[in-house]
Design a protein around this nucleic acid. Structure first.
Lengths: 229, 229
DNA sequence: CCTGTTAGTGTCTTTGTAACACTATCTTAT
DNA sequence: ATAAGATAGTGTTACAAAGACACTAACAGG
């Protein structure tokens, strides 16, 4: 009864939801499928877990293979395993949630061999997606918003040096609401999660101080969880 | 490259961490292994996912088979997938997190066929465990404490009718700290997550009013997430 | 009816959250 | 040189939630 051979084994895959912020919009990385099923539909980057690698390494490997992305924040999201979720057969997929700073994305990521195309899509305007990938993205989005409110994960989406306005815009973009500038800055400073540098960013207006993220205090809540009656 | 046949498939299992409160202590359900590897060591209830069932159903089925437990709160916890976690070969395990009210546990759950024994263990005094099950329990405990602070999941551990003292003791047991009686009751009432019944529980002292859980307001925070500097 | 035991209740202080508007500094155009 | 445009940066007050704290009430049993 406990022998591994007694059971038909499902295939195990990983799918990764990679978020970034581009031009003030939250984007997800998608790949155009080159073959059936769902040929020419968009889907999440991912692939099968090899027999000797951990799911997390599979996720990192697939991301590198398919998109060249290397340094990113990665965490396990949820395992999707309904028997009918893949028309090819039984595939259980461990979904991952990733964040990248858009300045680190390689520009030449489109049209590799002409078979696959990859693209960044605005989360509010997603195309039709293969498999249950829409559901996975919805789940990831929920997690992103949730995490943003009570952890300092947002820094993963910014370059090493950023202005407080950058940081605030990031929060506003993801949470979908305006935040008060003074309260936002007060809180960021009070929590000690950002640190001043001596550099400035210039434009045709008053220059802004650049800040860096202080990893030490990273476990703090940025905004307290809302209290519903 | 995308054919399912091209890949060696891992086995996929589920493991369930079932918590209950007995005699004011937090307990986990464990099973004594009847065969190698790790014969006679304790482990989490669980088993392999069948080719045509969802992981969640596998978890429910295994729990019923092994322990007779039927009605419980169940949610996916995390998928453990390091290649070396099972000496029999590659096994990826989807861990679940479950809560049962101890009054619903069948008493005759020990010594089925004399092969397997099952038992409830105090989380602070766990025996040696098979596989990486210790790690899984640690992870589940973290999740339990975390969820208790910001959701109303604690009710899953109580019978339908309970006193506010019962509820408070439950929180104290799991969080491992004393809570203030007046503040606790004030908050429980203010949030509207409990409802008075007209029944009382008697003892050799002042009788206590019984309350029920109001499912409507279940998404509220019971205690706000702590804010660390 | 006294004792033991648990149930039940209110106020004040502290802390965090939310609302709110003006000045400062730079660039560019005239 | 200076005015206009644009973004950076800053403090106070009011409100809401959390935390600390101690006594009275109701029952059973002796």
């Amino acid at each position: 009864m406990d022998k591994l051979e007694d059971y038909k084994r499902p295939s195990v895959a990983v799918d990764i939801v990679v978020f970034t912020i581009m031009h003030g919009r939250l984007k997800v990385l998608l790949i155009k499928r080159g073959r059936e099923p769902f040929k020419d539909l968009w889907c999440l980057p991912g692939g099968f877990v090899r027999i000797d690698e951990s799911p997390e390494n599979a996720a990192l490997r697939e991301l590198k293979e398919e998109t060249g992305i290397k340094d990113l924040y990665l965490e396990q999201l949820y395992t999707f395993g309904k028997p009918e979720r893949d028309p090819r057969g039984r595939v259980i997929s461990i979904a991952y949630f990733a964040l990248v700073d858009s300045t680190k994305i390689k520009p030449a990521v489109t049209g590799e061999e002409g078979i696959k195309k990859i693209g960044w899509f605005d989360v509010d305007f997603l195309p039709d997606l293969a498999f249950d990938h829409k559901e996975i993205i919805t789940y990831a989005l929920k997690r992103l918003r949730y995490k943003l409110e009570y952890t300092a994960v947002g820094f993963e989406l910014l370059p090493d040096k950023f202005t407080l306005t950058d940081l605030q815009k990031l929060y506003e973009t993801i949470l979908g609401e305006k935040l008060d500038k003074r309260n936002f800055r007060k809180k960021a400073m009070a929590m000690g999660i950002v640190e001043k540098t001596r550099e400035q960013r210039k434009g045709s207006h008053r220059p802004a101080l650049l800040y860096t993220f202080r990893k030490k205090a990273s476990s703090s809540a940025f905004k307290q969880v809302k209290f519903e009656k």
